[in-house]
Design a protein around this nucleic acid. Structure first.
Length: 577
DNA sequence: GCCGTTTTCGGCCCGACTGTTTTCAGTCG
């Protein structure tokens, strides 16, 4: 059973308990545990079977047992009991914005509302507003929320690559406005998360309301609320909501810290503050004894006041960064400027849009020292396959190009291939063809639905193949679209560490694969990570920023990443393998 | 239900907003 399924079951059980009127902290415990399970890089089902699920933060003995029950029988007894008491469709209703478990329970008790259809009917008939504490406005909001849920996926998450350019464009426009002072993108966009629910922008301004009005009039904004001195809430034409908050300059750091999050990070930070006799909020830090409030214009002062080293936004996920900051043991994170080469790209030979020379020149212009072209291999299909004789001609073309354009030695192109890993773990070129290449990436492109055991064996075989330099997009996931295939990340990482095979973080913003959790696990296992774009045209070589973002969120330092090395050292890595 | 340089029991972040209320509960981020 997958981590996501276990997490879903526990989150549902938490909501069932909430409907049953359980203590809110108990409910919170189920939600926190579900989140930790969802984020775990290793199989929680296996952990629980081994009695080790309690190693996860927020999972104790009770939940350990419930996970075992779930994995072995497919259900949790407590959940079955509660589902006999309430229709499980009540859990659906709690997903409507503004409808919590308390309200849903009342509607069930007093009006017998069990489904979304029941709810719509009751609202349309005006039966909800007759209940004490729920008026006509609430009823109207329910109907509007139901409509929004049907019309489009309003409020759904979008890829960072959709949110980030919009956030940057809006922030830049606001900065230009004469009323603006400071403008910073906060929230999950600033943390460079994989996906974002909305865009948060923090600002100070001489004329706050004018700045809010400027946002309302921005060409990307489709719908805007009421501009005030406090800011504005708006929605772009693409359906992304944008929240602008304007504050006094002296508390700018407090507000930025608060709205950068994450929620988990802030909770941990504030719990620590409470132990120090302090109370942290977006308005400042209050001394609980004296009631005195300190405000901080620079964000770093917030961390300093709490006795912590400055924590980079990408690390603020409640994954141990506060303890590390306390001990001065935060990593020196890799930066985009550290990257000296890109080792996964496609050209017109397979499914790319630009030629070998166009791609090479674009890579050189980005300041790289080395660049690998890795078109798809013989069994790729879609009419994009490259047969062995074509590949060997490509090797000649690369040699000729290096000689013609890059003979001064400051830049070189590696002749490579992205070779398919066949279901049995073999590669789809003969060894003597692979021996002609400078660089081999091995990736899974077919037969995703193998058992965990078979898929693990398949990938371990590829990683242990002495002709393979690097494993490509290891999980096969597509963010918001396709789940990763099932394999044992730990086993593959151990095999890669043993055999000196690199594993890539694919910077395609749909992939970000290795994920940040898996990249951290692999690097800790001793795997050398490679940051690649998988660019299919010159423009997407810029996706290196997303590979770096994932690496930073995985706590990676330059030394853990192969292609931060200058060519002379990278070359030695290739020779050693 | 979890967890421990204040605790194995008694705590568990903080504030804004909304819609309904005469002081607040519920929901959200």
């Amino acid at each position: 059973m997958r981590n996501a399924e276990i997490a879903d079951a526990l989150a549902e059980l938490g909501t069932l308990y909430e409907l049953d009127g359980a203590d809110r902290f108990r409910v919170l415990a189920y939600r926190d545990a579900a989140k930790a399970i969802r984020q775990s890089p290793v199989s929680v089902a296996e952990l629980a079977r081994a009695g080790r699920a309690t190693e996860l933060p927020g999972v104790g003995k009770t939940l350990q047992q419930k996970i075992v029950d779930l994995v072995e029988t497919g259900t949790i007894p407590a959940a079955e009991k509660l589902k006999a008491k309430f229709p499980p469709s009540l859990v659906e209703i709690t997903r409507i914005p503004g409808m919590g478990a308390k309200t849903v329970r009342r509607l069930w008790d007093e009006l017998g509302i069990a489904t979304l259809d029941d709810l719509r009917e009751a609202a349309e008939q005006g039966r909800i507003q007759k209940l004490r504490g729920l008026g006509p406005k609430f009823e109207r909001n329910v109907l509007e929320a139901l409509e929004r849920m049907e019309v489009d996926g309003a409020g759904e998450r979008v890829l960072l690559s959709e949110a980030l350019p919009v956030a940057e464009e809006i922030a830049a426009a606001l900065r230009e406005h004469p009323a603006a002072d400071q403008v910073t993108v906060a929230g999950s966009v600033r943390r460079l998360a994989e996906t974002c629910k909305d865009i948060d922008i923090i600002a100070t301004a001489s004329e706050p309301k004018q700045l809010a009005e400027a946002l309302a009039e921005h060409e990307l904004i489709a719908v805007a609320g009421n501009p005030t001195d406090a800011g504005l809430r708006a929605t772009t034409h693409a359906g992304i909501s944008v929240d602008l908050r304007i504050v006094e300059p002296d508390a700018y750091g407090n507000l930025l810290q608060h709205f950068t999050g994450s929620a988990a990070h802030n909770v941990e930070l504030r719990e620590r503050a409470v132990r120090m006799g302090l109370s942290v909020s977006e308005h400042g830090i209050t001394n609980t004894e004296t009631g005195e409030v300190e405000r901080h214009a620079p964000e770093a002062e917030v961390y300093e006041r709490l006795g912590l080293a400055y924590i980079e936004p990408e690390l603020r996920e409640g994954r141990g960064e506060i303890k590390a900051a306390e001990r001065g043991e935060l990593p020196e994170l890799v930066e985009l400027e550290d990257v000296r080469g890109d080792l996964h790209s496609h050209t017109t030979l397979s499914d790319g849009k630009h030629t070998l020379e166009e791609m090479a020149e674009a890579a050189r212009e980005r300041g790289y020292e080395y660049f690998a072209v890795t078109d798809h291999s013989a069994t790729h299909g879609f009419g994009n396959d490259v047969q062995a004789d074509q590949l060997l001609r490509r090797v000649e073309e690369v040699r000729e190009l290096n000689e013609r354009l890059y003979s001064d030695g400051s830049f070189r192109v590696l002749a490579g291939s992205e070779v398919n890993i066949l279901p049995n773990g073999d590669l789809d070129y003969p060894d003597e063809v692979l021996d002609e290449l400078d660089w081999v990436i091995a990736s899974v492109h077919t037969s995703f639905r193998m058992t965990r055991e078979k898929m693990t064996k398949r990938m371990v075989a590829a990683v242990e193949n002495p002709r393979v330099n690097c494993l490509g997009h290891p999980s096969g996931r597509l963010l918001l679209r396709r789940e990763p295939y099932d394999f044992d990340v730990e086993a593959v990482a151990e095999a890669a560490a043993r055999s000196g095979t690199m594993i890539e973080i694919n910077g395609n913003p749909n992939r970000r694969d290795l994920s940040e959790q898996n990249a951290r696990l692999a690097a800790e296992a001793g795997v050398l990570i490679c940051l690649n774009t998988d660019a299919h045209q010159t423009g997407t070589l810029a996706n290196m920023r997303y590979a770096v973002a994932t690496a930073r969120r995985a706590w990676l330092e330059p030394k853990q990443i192969a292609n931060t090395r200058p060519w002379s050292e990278f070359q030695k890595l290739l020779e050693a393998n």
